[in-house]
Amino acid sequence: MSSFSLTRVAAVMIKEFKQLTRDRLTYAMMLAVPVMQLLLFGYAINSEPRHLPTALLVQEDSVFARSIVAALKNSSYFDLVAQARSPAELDDLVRRGEVQFAITIPGDFTRRLARGDGAQVLVEADASDPSATGPAVAALAALPTQALAHDLKGALAPAIGKAPFEVVVHRRYNPEAITAYSIVPGLLGIILSMTLVMMTALSVTREAERGTMESLLATPVEPIEVMAGKLAPYVAVGLIQTAIILILARLLFDVPMVGGWLGLSLGVALFIVGSLALGFLMSTVARTQLQAMQMSMFYILPSILLSGFMFPFRGMPAWAQALGEIVPVTHFLRVVRGALLKGQGTLDMWRELAALLAFACVVTALAMARYRRTLD
């Protein structure tokens, strides 16, 4: 038996480095994934979101109402983006998800304040994602003592230890702040992404590795026919997964399912088709199953971190939110949560459905173009 040789070890090491540099996709993934994780966790992830979009309904024009509005503007938690003219308009803004908070200053606020008759300010929070509203709701506790500190003097000064008015908080869509109501519906998008994208990419790449794709290319089958035939079984798999997740979400976690079934069905169909087309596109780029899996993970990681699944979407900086809007899971999560928790109709979620439709069309077109090039 020959003795251990550093020369032979060095020769094998050099060979391995050369092999690694030839596999450029794997090499790029090894460098890109750590950098992406560092940037996302270091800059984009924020568990205490601020500057949340807020709508106001001010039903009286008084110095006290203006002071409360000024205090809200000075807060780092609320960005006043809309001025509603009626309770119905305010309710519509919250239900469509355009604002995170809706604040109402009633018409009898000044009269009740002057009489010490329990003046109240109503704050409605979209609590479909409890982590997005928790810190801001906690910050509201200081509003009664700070907002009117310079206005209530003399006879209007409140008794020591008594707040001049009360902030009444209504947590809508998830009043008990149950995390499962947000996480479990969101899991539908993550699970469909992980399984459909990766399964499709691996399936087609496996055929290329085994040589069966060459036999398929020798047949008169058109590219669109190959794509439709390959993806059709996985559409059924995606629908079965969706049904299982929704049934278990109701039975095990008691997730409320208010309605919005037509919009949810359209969203599921578009997301499944888009995810499968994306997996097919990856398979036309990857040369091995390992590369296909790496590309799938490179897509799934930002889908988890930037979509609002694990961390509040509005807590991320503007550039991260812009990237998150590109991720299809972001729009799919809004469709699922909006349908199940808010009962949104198709018209309420048309922007998200349009984004999913655009994603499915663009990715399908790219996959077809790439597959035609491989045929040539």
Rank of each mutant, 00 (worst) to 15 (best):
T284L: 05
R172I: 11
L40M: 15
G260W: 01
R112A: 14
L52A: 05
M1C: 13
L246G: 08
G189R: 00
R96K: 13
A127F: 00
L305R: 06
V33Q: 00
E176V: 11
A354D: 08
D61L: 07
A125N: 07
V235K: 05
Q19P: 07
M349S: 07
A249Y: 01
R334M: 07
G267C: 12
T104H: 02
K15V: 12
D108Q: 09
I244T: 14
R351G: 13
A277E: 03
T219H: 06
A159R: 15
R287Y: 02
T110Y: 09
P158A: 10
A180H: 04
M213C: 00
V99P: 06
S283F: 00
M310Q: 14
V33W: 03
A318P: 05
S3F: 12
D151F: 02
F17G: 07
G274P: 01
F359K: 08
S215W: 00
A142Q: 12
A243F: 10
A269K: 05
L252R: 14
L56P: 01
N74M: 10
E209C: 01
M368K: 12
P223H: 06
H170Y: 12
W261F: 15
L216A: 09
F280D: 02
G229L: 07
Q289A: 14
L143W: 03
A358E: 00
A127P: 00
L251Q: 15
M227F: 08
V221W: 07
P256Y: 03
R85S: 12
L188T: 13
A218L: 15
A44I: 00
G134N: 11
R85M: 12
A236N: 13
P175Y: 04
L290F: 13
M36F: 11
L25E: 11
L278V: 08
G161M: 05
Y234E: 08
M213N: 09
K18A: 15
A369T: 11
G189V: 10
D254F: 01
N174C: 04
T284I: 05
A358R: 02
Q83V: 15
A127H: 02
L246H: 06
A232P: 04
A70P: 07
L188H: 00
I244L: 10
K18L: 10
L196E: 03
P256Q: 12
L187S: 14
F309Q: 03
G279N: 00
L188F: 02
E98N: 08
K230L: 07
A44T: 09
G116N: 15
